[in-house]
Design a binder for these strands. Sequence first.
DNA 1: GTTTCAAAAGTAACCGGTTACAAATGGAAC
DNA 2: GTTCCATTTGTAACCGGTTACTTTTGAAAC
Lengths: 355, 355
Amino acid sequence: MAEQAPTIYDVAERAGVSVATVSRALNDVESLRAVTRDKVMRAMAELDFVPNNVARGLSRGKNWVLGLAFMHSPVRANEAEVEADSLLYTDIIIRGVEAEAARHGYSLLLCSAGEEHPDGIAPLRNLTQSVDGWIVLDRVLSADEVPEISRRTPLVLMAGAGESDSAYTVRVDNEGGISSLVTHLVEVHGARRFGYMSGLNESPDNVARLRALRDSARRHGVSVDDADIISCDWTSGGAEVQTARWLDRRVDLPDVLVCANDQMAIGAIHAMGAKGLKVPRDIAVTGFDDIPIARYLTPALTTVRQSSSAMGAEAVDVLLAAMAGEPVANTTTLASRLQVRHSCGCRGELDEVAS
Amino acid sequence: MAEQAPTIYDVAERAGVSVATVSRALNDVESLRAVTRDKVMRAMAELDFVPNNVARGLSRGKNWVLGLAFMHSPVRANEAEVEADSLLYTDIIIRGVEAEAARHGYSLLLCSAGEEHPDGIAPLRNLTQSVDGWIVLDRVLSADEVPEISRRTPLVLMAGAGESDSAYTVRVDNEGGISSLVTHLVEVHGARRFGYMSGLNESPDNVARLRALRDSARRHGVSVDDADIISCDWTSGGAEVQTARWLDRRVDLPDVLVCANDQMAIGAIHAMGAKGLKVPRDIAVTGFDDIPIARYLTPALTTVRQSSSAMGAEAVDVLLAAMAGEPVANTTTLASRLQVRHSCGCRGELDEVAS
DNA sequence: GTTTCAAAAGTAACCGGTTACAAATGGAAC
DNA sequence: GTTCCATTTGTAACCGGTTACTTTTGAAAC
């Protein structure tokens, strides 16, 4: 099936030159005479020659490949669950990274790893030399694993804690986003009591968002009751279950449920609907991320917009700068901004009519 | 920053053996004496040695990397658009492919290419020797480009036309899915007139779905009016715009709008809501794919379920079998099945109450 | 037609592994 | 202590490129 690919030796022979000359033609060295170059080019075309990037990478020590590692999700019994959850956010980043990498001539090597992976971070470690640099998403590497990787390869952490000094970090401005969200809820909607739907506890983004919520609440003199902090796992399905339990448990609901991401907001709204609660009339719900679907939900979701693809692109830019030895800030924080729609109570009457 | 990585020569020197012995220790050759192996292993551990996969790949002619090529979407002026559209479907496939590839010890090289890419399919061609096989999504390769790639590398086309004999094809059973959808709409809801929201015309899936709709309609003696076939582009945003135009144009709506994917159904429902039309009371709308979010929409979307991650996994399995020289069917068709929810009219009264 | 020297092209080592083949080793049998 | 041979280990070529260094070329100047 797969026929033997021609090498520069084949090209050299056909063109009647040495391999060095073929290599020079490949790399646009200007010291080649036009006649010679043409001869080589013709031979390459006739043989349908494509240079072997692996060999090239080995000899030049540069592969033109960036690695992107993300958290491995073990396959669960219910396959639908696997598909349903933790998608979107990571995916948009993958796309953003791929696009920016391609723009700079790099391909992207995808690698799932992390504590839930049967081999831990071994996949990542093994590919270290196949890759010119790593972009690693939140939760893949523990704090003490970071130096181990960054010692050998330039490393950018995404959505990480932002405290490593052996790697670069690109993160979103959780604080600013939550702060404007709380301000809006307090000043426009008079919210006094806040609930929080938590992502996985260890996640730096989750930690930052909860802390930001507490800080903002304190500044506005409003409260976040510990009983209204719902432990969850970033997923819609999880949020649906946890919200139902919470609703059974609590008689006295807060004014708003601030969710750490959009997926969980979707699940929460669904669970509330099932109990006969209407959003935002009975309780407001907000998200974080502004995934594409957020504006099409009923009610349309009020959320904090972050551009995941821009974050992916930024991570690539930081990594390339680091690889080039240019000075780069240790931590890059990308702006987020409040995206007001209906689930906070704004234009609520329109929702009533439409539904 | 990045320190020089140790090579097998360093390990050999430290262990006091030859590089061949180190290589044997690396590859678990059984002819090594336990004493020798231990010596080598200790040296590797002391140096924190990680074998260079690029060198390994060059010498063995096998990289343990699979390539996944998908359609390049040019960056548009409005960045939100880029994020919003054509996501999900491709992304779930990417995840499915990654997971299955990893399970077999392969990494995944991502590559966007195709006619909309500034370099066309050159990225794909250039990486041919970096990869042990290609999985290429719909619309990346034209029919005459397929043999050019498959000549050098095993090739699996996903969601393609399924007519190439130089490559393997993995596709979903569009016919069966549409057929049961139409049967349900006719027999349960008494639908007589069908509209169709079309994906991009060239896409094999789109062609197959429209043809299946026409065939099924004919079998049931119901109609698809050409004026109710809406040209669109797979995206929510596009569907929103096209649906609005269509509603302005048509006075006499069909009973159902069958959409070629879920994203477009979402956009269509939104546009209908904006015109004061209620789904499914005034018109039923159905999707295709069953993206995770479909069940959380209002109304919950009736659609044809296909498991994109299973399709990704299947593509990997076919590719690996082909690489191993095992006999593989030229075309693999994965089952799809009707997922009835509310947007077709089922349990419509519940929606009325809930809203 | 020589000489001269910058420009062009060739030779061979190297990147870091694998592996065919050759050489060395060591335990058993004599 | 030899001999013998299967087992273990070492040597060196090779994978397909790049590139430092050397040699050749050829146009200009004499």
